[in-house]
Design a binder for these strands. Structure first.
Length: 255
DNA sequence: ATGGCGCGCGCAGCGCGA
């Protein structure tokens, strides 16, 4: 089983990239964030034509999450059940015996801002939801754009980013609280090169200069740690014409 | 990293992302 997460920053603009990537990599599941497309306009048929089912929760202009999968989704849950929130940021679904929770964590804008407060409150509610989901599902994967670089080694220049949003201690504590529920950051379970990132600013030639952050993650429950055979970032789509600013993070499992 | 780019909306220029 091969699964991936990718913040595509508009599925409308990136549809050809996503279709080509699916054809090339053939994952069993691809979780998308920032689709920025309402459900009525979701290009489900384009995915069906290449052998993929879809589940999605979109809205106009902002946010939006979608799962592209070989198997059909069951037990679909949109949004955090314990939080009233019009923003489409969570899509949970079951594939076979595996529970998948696709998340687009709020950006937070700036430390101390209204949006930062919302981000921290949102993460607290996410933790509550995951706690109950972990009781209900042995095999659980939570993946997506977390908008948190968990450690300094996930930041191209920790001194420049010290205390900034995406990197602040409060956000990192919230991330560690998710891990403490019994989740593992799969990327760090394997040897990696230094300076591996999943997002680079469009400005300043940030990608060329590898000025990035690792803010997209694949976390899994205890039962899936041993079956996981690889976890890595695919930088190739960032080199394309009109790329998304994030790149896919992939995890592979035996059986 | 004072902004810088790219997206959506909508037709100018702003809000937002990270």
């Amino acid at each position: 089983m091969k699964i991936a997460t990718w913040n595509v920053n508009s599925l409308r603009v990136r549809l050809a990239h996503v279709l080509a990537w699916l054809q090339q990599h053939g994952p069993d599941l691809l979780c998308l964030q920032e689709t920025k497309i309402i459900d009525a306009e979701f290009p489900a048929e384009e995915f069906r034509k290449i052998g993929y089912e879809t589940a999605y929760a979109g809205q106009k202009t902002y946010n939006g999450v979608a799962n592209i999968s070989r198997l059909g989704a069951q037990e679909i849950q949109i949004g955090l059940p314990n939080m009233e929130d019009p923003q489409r940021r969570v899509l949970a679904a079951t594939y076979g015996d595996t529970r998948i929770i696709n998340v687009y964590v709020p950006n937070g804008s700036a430390v101390g801002s209204e949006k930062y407060i919302y981000k921290l409150a949102w993460l607290k509610q996410l933790a509550g939801y995951l706690q109950t989901q972990l009781k209900d599902y042995k095999k659980l994967i939570v993946l997506g754009d977390f908008n948190i670089a968990p450690e300094d080694r996930d930041v191209h220049d920790p001194a420049a980013w010290l205390g900034e949003v995406l990197v602040s201690e409060e956000e990192r504590r919230a991330f560690r609280e998710l891990i403490a529920l019994g989740l593992t950051d799969l990327f760090r379970n394997f040897p990696q090169e230094e300076k591996c990132f999943s997002w680079w600013d469009y400005r300043m030639g940030a990608f060329r200069r590898n000025m990035g952050l690792r803010i997209d993650h694949v976390l899994c429950s205890q039962a899936l740690i041993k079956p996981c055979t690889a976890c890595y970032i695919d930088k190739e789509p960032r080199r394309l014409e009109r790329p998304a600013d994030h790149t896919p993070v992939i995890a592979e499992f035996c059986s």
